[in-house]
Amino acid sequence: MRVTTYREALREAMREEMQRDERVIIIGEDIDAYGGTYAVTKGLAEEFGRDRVRDTPLAEGVIAGAAVGAAMSGLRPVAEIMTINFSLLASDQIINTAAKVRYMFGGQTNVPVVFRMPAGGGAQRGAQHSQMLETMYAHVPGLKVVMPATPYDAKGMLKSAIRDEDPVLLIEHELLYGVRGEVPDIGEEYTVPLNRGDIKREGTDVTLVTFSRAVHLCLQAAEELAHEGISAEVVDLRCIRPIDLDLVLDSVKKTNRAVVVEEGWKYYGAGQGIAAMIYEYGFDDLDAPIGHVTGVDAPAPYAKNLEKAAFPTHTDIVAAVKKITPVRSGR
């Protein structure tokens, strides 16, 4: 094991898969000459050539459509969409094509494509550059939506995504690229499955169900709660479609309490969907209503103080947990 960044881990995943399989190509805006908007693809064009690492015009629709068509005809494209906000321009091809063709063409084709894109706020990038939007894609049958929180998961899941026969959206978080964590040494092959969550911290009193950057907030909150005598279990879903529901339900069976934590908006979103699944399949195990910590129901603001108030913090999570978890006195 060694310590590396989320960004490096993603790059290693692509490098290794490109070495392993000549059909793997990367297309996207500013992935070559610029070095990658978030420097994830830096150096790959030099290493693999400009046939396989292709800068595109600023045209998300054709980036996505060409990636889908290439995937249907034998290549294994990784399409980098500069941010999830711009993916709305690609969403026709993602939702209307990638997610549909296998089904509507009677199983005659499949779309082994990966769409990588950063999401999230917290860097004062304003309303049009700070959205999560994973909910929109997770709603759609035919897509896999993967949201790793650590370098280990990012590398292992991107490798799995590239090898996967179905369309996968790997949604990164702008504030995670610099996060460091343990990753097996180069040459030590591993992958992380796309349908399994991970217990990032074990606990007994309450289950925090979360994904992406919010995992780190939950871990911070769990640490603080531990000082107050509350043992929180952090379930990192890692992928929200498909969702490792058994992992969540088993945890809730143990703790009898759940708080769903996400950065995105509260209503009609992934978090409410997850809560609904817990209610539907694990209602008898619940001793309290499910808590829900989310971003504020407003477009992301620019001003630093406003933005700070717009996104959830570990303090919000601590408060939400305390609301449904009795503090054990007299211990």
Partner: peptide, 8 residues
């Protein structure tokens, strides 16, 4: 765009 992908 899909056709462009096939051609690629």
């Amino acid at each position: 765009p899909i056709a462009c992908g096939y051609a690629l």
